[in-house]
Design a protein around this nucleic acid. Structure first.
Lengths: 153, 153
DNA sequence: CTTTCGTTGAGCATTCTGCTCATGCTCCGG
DNA sequence: CCGGAGCATGAGCAGAATGCTCAACGAAAG
């Protein structure tokens, strides 16, 4: 990932459906170069799966909540697997510090969320949880600032 | 977003670079239909920005951390703006419950993270913060399970 | 019954893709 | 100083995809 790659990504962020030819022209690069770099990024894991672009909202799950949990560390693998078994669990991190887990959850409505929180709490190995509803997205997910910096360097 | 849309998204999740023609064939739909639906989803906000597919890791920021913060509610707008001014702040949620804010941060290394945490804490209106390092991604971001459910229904 | 909406198949000109080659440039090790 | 290695480039080519439009059809809604 050098500055050129970052520039390509920036252009793509602005217009996801831009063709390779368009990108090449816009960036003053050869079509071949862009094609190679995009392929390399796609291959080398610089780009995550397409799923990341899908809004849970569109799937009828407008609510997002974060469940923090303390777990019996010896049963972490077990807990992790159980969490992965819950469809509405979208992302789970193992944390340092007070709480061991951060579980990102989406839900259709408040009742749905309650149900899911219950399922999480019922997982053997989980000792205590706290659920916080995401009421507002103050800064929507973005990487442009970092991209810009990388593109400049 | 009906079941057909979900099926299209599932196919796309499996092969992001699949062409419309390929999708149509795979799903037994007309090319026209797929093209219309994809366009509609892209237009209607079912798909978030392309940036979501970019791994911070590829940009030289392999570390992810979550900073929770209590803020002076009357200065929320101000705080939010200041957070948006920090490049490494990738996402911010306003939460219900104990803590007011959840700030998702990426960093190049531990020292970088320390610096960023400092910048956040220095924001006027922020009263207390706690930083938790994401040590492991136990369940990587995914939407497939929900998609599958939507595709079945 | 009639309107509306989404799907479908067809067609067409334009454009893009995927791939290969040879060339030229720059950086690095010998 | 010379010989790679790695990357960007320009060219070329066959095949495929795209964007768009049109007319027909069925189902669901009014």
């Amino acid at each position: 990932m050098d500055a050129t790659d970052a520039r390509i990504l920036l252009a793509l962020a602005a217009r996801p459906r831009a063709t390779v030819v368009a990108l090449a022209e816009q960036l003053g690069l050869s079509r071949n170069t862009v094609q190679a770099r995009v392929a390399r990024m796609e291959q080398g894991g610089a780009l995550g799966s397409f799923e990341r672009r899908i809004t849970p909202n569109a799937l009828g799950h407008p609510l997002t909540a974060f469940v923090t949990a303390r777990v019996d560390q010896r049963r972490l693998a077990e807990v992790s697997e159980a969490l992965a078994g819950i469809d509405e669990v979208v992302e789970v991190f193992g944390l340092s510090g007070e709480t061991d887990l951060l579980v990102r959850v989406v839900a259709a409505d408040a009742e749905d969320l309650y149900r899911i929180a219950g399922r999480i709490l019922a997982i053997p190995g989980i000792e205590r949880t706290a659920t916080a509803l995401a009421m507002r997205e103050l800064v929507p997910h973005r990487l442009t600032p970092l991209l810009r910096r990388a593109a400049a360097g």
